[in-house]
């Protein structure tokens, strides 16, 4: 239960940061936190009480392995999702740097004012 609570808190913090923070880097950090929450949710849903890693060891009984291991499917999805999150973060940081170069600030409100 505490893990579901953690997921909820991370999602809330991420959404709060995305909406309320005005600094672009803070927004990117909030997106990363939202990412944490989603990834953790998938892993937690795939968790099985007492389950080990979904890796078959030599000599292990395959049938017992299939019954006892945690769910590998969410892990496979999260694995790529994390790396994609990194690529997206890089893209966002590049955009934020470009905006900072253009407007001299990372504050979205001041960017609005400068444009007008």
């Amino acid at each position: 239960m505490i893990l579901y609570a953690l997921v909820l808190v991370l999602l809330g913090l991420g959404i709060h940061g995305l909406l309320a923070k005005r600094n672009l880097l803070k927004k990117i950090i909030a997106l990363a936190i939202l990412d944490y929450g989603v990834n953790l949710l998938l892993i937690v849903v795939g968790y099985r009480a007492g389950g080990g890693a979904p890796i078959l060891l030599p000599g292990e009984d395959p049938a017992a392995f299939a019954r006892g291991s945690v769910d590998p499917l969410p892990q496979a999805l999260v694995l790529t999702s994390i790396v994609i999150g990194l690529g997206v973060t890089m893209l966002l940081v590049a955009m934020a740097l470009r905006l900072h170069q253009r407007y001299g600030t990372l504050d979205v409100d001041r960017m609005d004012r400068l444009r007008g």
């Binding site: 968790y47 007492g50 389950g51 979904p54 078959l56 019954r67 769910d71 590998p72 499917l73």
Partner: peptide
């Protein structure tokens, strides 16, 4: 609830991976 076994395709994946 956390850790409950769920019927998913994962059984097939786990059994077929090797």
């Amino acid at each position: 609830p956390l850790g409950a076994p769920r019927p998913t395709p994962s059984f097939w994946y786990l059994a077929e991976s090797l």
